[in-house]
Write a protein that binds this DNA or RNA. Structure first.
Length: 437
RNA sequence: GCGGAUGUAGCUCAGUUGGUUAGAGCGUCUGAUUGUGGCUCAGAAGGCCGUGGGUUCAAGUCCCAUCAUUCGCCCCA
């Protein structure tokens, strides 16, 4: 029985070239989020299972969570999402924190399910949350952050669309306007979520089947179907438009317009899976028809912190998975060609190792990242290794160089070779590193 | 949990109606007078044909099971 070399199902190994991409993505994200004044936090990957039982949604906890009993008999879960954890942390220091609170994290999360494109068992997810603001300025800021992140990767507004809806609005429509029962509301919500995935006729039939004959006679079924076709807030019936939640949506859309975020639209079919959303919900979709899925989602959840027995804190948050982000960037050809962190690869010629040690350490002290071959192979083999690793410069150190204190440095891309002092070499190779970014 | 597709060298794949000793390209390693990669040339290593069973004189090839990968569905963090 030989050991398998592949990683655990649905999880990824990050070889250096993969890790470089991840570092690039997370680095770009961090820069933007910190520009908006958000602070990074973190927490354990294990939580008591009950943390998720309270609010996440039954199926997710029962079937999609990695859970086990620890040696002390405690029920433990590997975190499937970060929102309960961050709510717990805020609740624990409810009184002493300075609001509004702006926090972010990039945790790895696990879900037990069948892997498919864009969805693995382990993924990293950017979580950005703002606590303590009841007004839609909070939603505005998070959407702005998401938009800024995409822009700083080099994408343009035609590549993605921001779709916005409100749970509060949907509640009003389904409960008060259409007068549906809680069971009917549940079924309809799930149906709406699938609207764009199933044939139109089938969808219509399934919607119609939800209603009782008397409701149908009163026109409720046709009303709902009519509503679901609406693409703009102003086309909603007046009673709905006058509702507080619709006015909020309108304000938010106007703010986005003022901020020149022109690819944001009202979309009545955006529901989000979690039970805990209480207000505005939003998602960003890739416009590429080959990857037409939601890559980021978020919304307002004002009730979660309060579950821990403290005064509730109004909160808006977003979650953005690394897998969907990477699919988007690759699909639009936005992933840069990244080089390793090593600036220069030292090729030792002859038996000069101990004599070269000092100059090599000088290079590092002056700021260069320096790898030394150390294999004692012929120069051609050493150069080949450097080139294969993607390192941009090779530096030759032999007796002659040590005597003259001038070293050959070769650009491995162009093949151009020059002789310089150690200080000059450091400035050449580190200048190149700057250019790359 | 359900359905489809695919498993042959490190990678991408050929392999005829079942028929000797399983192939190519790329990659890897060695060498072409030991201080310079990419081009060229010569050579080498590397495979229980995913695994187990069955049919057959004979299985990489046909049948069954199983495992794995992958694309969908359910569900969505």
């Amino acid at each position: 029985m030989t050991l398998a070399t592949q990683p655990y199902k649905g999880a990824r190994d990050f070889y250096p070239e993969d890790k470089r991409l991840q570092k690039y993505m997370f680095g770009t994200i961090r820069k933007v989020v910190e520009q908006f004044g958000y602070e990074e936090y973190d927490a354990p990957i294990l939580e008591p299972l009950e943390l998720y039982l309270a609010k996440t949604g039954e199926e997710i906890v029962n079937e999609q969570t990695y859970a086990f009993t620890d040696r002390g008999g405690r029920q433990v879960a590997i975190r499937p999402e970060m929102t309960p954890t961050v709510s717990r942390m805020v609740a624990a220091r409810r009184q002493e924190l300075a609001y509004p609170l702006r926090w972010y994290s990039i945790p790895n999360l696990w879900r037990y399910e069948r892997p498919q494109r864009g969805r693995l068992r382990e993924h990293w997810q950017l979580n950005v949350d703002i606590f303590g603001l009841p007004g839609i300025e909070a939603e505005m800021e998070l959407i702005q952050i998401a938009d800024t992140i995409l822009r700083s990767f080099g994408s343009t507004h035609d590549m993605y669309s921001i779709r916005i809806n409100s749970r509060k609005l949907m509640d009003f429509i389904l409960k008060d306007y259409l007068e549906l029962t809680p069971t009917q509301i549940n079924t309809v919500c799930k149906l709406i979520d699938r609207m764009h995935k199933i044939p139109h006729a089938e969808f219509m039939a399934e919607v119609d089947a939800v209603f009782t004959p008397s409701q149908r006679d009163a026109g409720a079924s046709n009303k709902l179907i009519g509503l679901l076709k609406i693409k703009q807030l102003q086309h909603l019936p007046e009673v709905i438009r006058e509702h507080e939640s619709a006015k909020e949506l309108k304000q938010l859309m106007d703010m986005l317009d003022d901020a020149r975020i022109t690819n944001a639209v009202f979309d009545i079919t955006i529901m989000r899976g979690f039970d805990y959303y209480t207000g505005i919900v939003f998602e960003i979709f890739d416009n590429d028809p080959n990857n037409n899925r939601s890559m980021m989602g978020g919304g307002r959840y004002d009730g979660l912190v309060g579950l821990f027995g403290v005064e509730p804190v109004p909160t808006v948050g977003l979650g953005w998975g690394d897998v969907t982000m990477q699919n988007f960037l690759e699909g639009h050809d936005l992933m840069p060609n990244l080089r390793p962190e090593t600036d220069v690869y030292v090729v030792l010629i002859g038996d000069v190792y101990s004599k070269a040690l000092r100059i090599i350490q000088d290079l590092r002290n002056m700021g260069a990242n320096v790898a030394v071959d150390l294999s004692g192979r012929k120069p051609d083999k050493q150069i080949k290794s450097a080139a294969k690793k993607g390192i941009h410069y090779a530096m030759f150190i032999g007796e002659k160089e040590l005597d003259e204190e001038l070293y050959e440095i070769r650009n491995l891309l162009t093949g151009v070779e020059e002789r310089h002092s150690a200080a000059r070499i450091v400035s050449i190779v580190t200048d190149y590193r700057e250019e790359e970014i």
